[in-house]
Design a protein around this nucleic acid. Structure first.
Lengths: 232, 232
DNA sequence: GCAAAAGTGTTTGGATTACACCCATGC
DNA sequence: GCATGGGTGTAATCCAAACACTTTTGC
């Protein structure tokens, strides 16, 4: 850090954090969008974000944004790319860091607030024009999510706590944008520590599927003691 | 972006960019370190970095830092994590974005300049205490490099233009911190478009190895037309 | 000839793929 | 009974690991 220009003159930036909130339902991965209630880009759809407060770590800012909008707490956040084109924000030099959060869509009741005139879930592959460079942010973040789904057991943050293997399979099919063989998918799932709840799906007009739950405790043990590594 | 605090009061941040410059030689991956000639942390070892200028994109800042120190140009840069703990910089709120560059160590003659009292290459696994949170930055960036080495043909940015298969193998051995079987390694390399130069290694007291060169043109064709994807 | 590393072939077992089949439920 | 998806087994194939062997150079 060779400060070739007077140090103080650099304190004229702003730093924001944009958070893509992912949810899953019925075979599709969604992002939570807000209709901006403030300038710039008032009235346009965007992902939630805010400036980072002076005493906040980046992940704290992400948590704050997430909690204000969804009222859920204790969600794991994942850092994405940072976007810093000089002209990306019409009101000044704002560099933004992307984060993403995985929530259980059915548990969330996001409501409009001071930031947002309106709020909606939209399937990732059906999002059209957003404010700022938010399309780019959503795309890069979704790509990162897809990569992480293959190497970390984070699909369980999107699925309901109790889920069927078919729901899980459809999540992977959407993320990989391809169909998978049922029997082979289940063979791949075998080594993952799941608890078979021996409960059945209800109100379906076919043979009801078994419900499962991720065994996070056994997962940690496996990682530590047996050198297990999640792979899908 | 709900500006709940007056917008202007946020323009009191600074944004920097730190660049880990990786090189390879003799079975080891190195990082280029500088001994700081300025406060804070004067006299301590650190990775090169600077504040991002007002009209610069992040990658431009990374290029600038790289070029000033190494005099090389046209190097591909890779973005890493962003670090923003409120107290990470003793002089104020400085958020930093990590980048990394891959250079051919033998082609570089980095020299001390106004930033740096001294400059040196150090093997990644032998770096001790650095200034700021730079150890964390180096580690996270190296991890990212190792991941990318598996899915992108970037080892050729580290290797000399003409290299032997054994040099390539040792690069992967260092990055994965494990030994590999020669025969199996070569089988894996088979599908990669390499040009066999039919030139031999010189001044070795054993059978001289063949020299190869990465065929980047054929690589692009393969990716486009045959759906090839690099994998190691 | 010997040491050292280059370079190649074969065997084996485990994982992945494709596909076929049976099962339980609602209507 | 039939439509719908749940759930499982098998054979064929591909791939990766282990290992042995031959080749070429300097001394």
């Amino acid at each position: 850090m060779g400060y070739k220009i007077k140090f103080d003159s650099f304190f004229s930036y702003s730093f924001s954090l944009d958070c893509v909130i992912f949810g899953y339902e019925n075979g599709k991965i969604y992002a939570l969008l807000i209709k901006r209630a403030i300038e710039p880009f008032i009235g346009e759809w965007a992902i939630p974000g805010d400036l980072v407060y002076p005493d906040e770590d980046l992940s704290d800012a992400a948590s704050r944004i997430l909690t204000e909008l969804t009222k859920v707490d204790g969600v794991t956040l994942h850092q994405g790319q940072t976007f810093g084109k000089p002209k990306r924000h019409p009101q000044g030099r704002v560099i933004t860091n992307a984060y993403f959060a995985l929530v259980r869509k059915e548990d969330i009741n996001a409501e409009a607030d001071s930031w947002a005139e309106e709020v909606k879930w939209l399937p990732i592959r059906e999002i059209s024009q957003l404010a700022f460079d938010h399309n780019e942010i959503v795309e890069s973040t979704f790509e990162l999510l897809c990569q992480k789904l293959k190497r970390e057991p984070i699909c369980f943050d999107l699925l309901q706590e109790k889920f069927t293997l078919n729901e899980m399979q459809q999540l992977y099919e959407y993320s990989q944008n391809s169909e998978l063989d049922k029997a082979n998918f289940r063979k791949k799932v075998k080594p993952i520590p799941l608890i078979n709840l021996h409960e059945k799906q209800k109100n379906v007009k076919h043979r009801p599927a078994n419900l499962f739950k991720f065994d996070s405790q056994r997962y940690s043990e496996l990682v530590k003691e047996e050198n297990y590594s999640f792979r899908m």
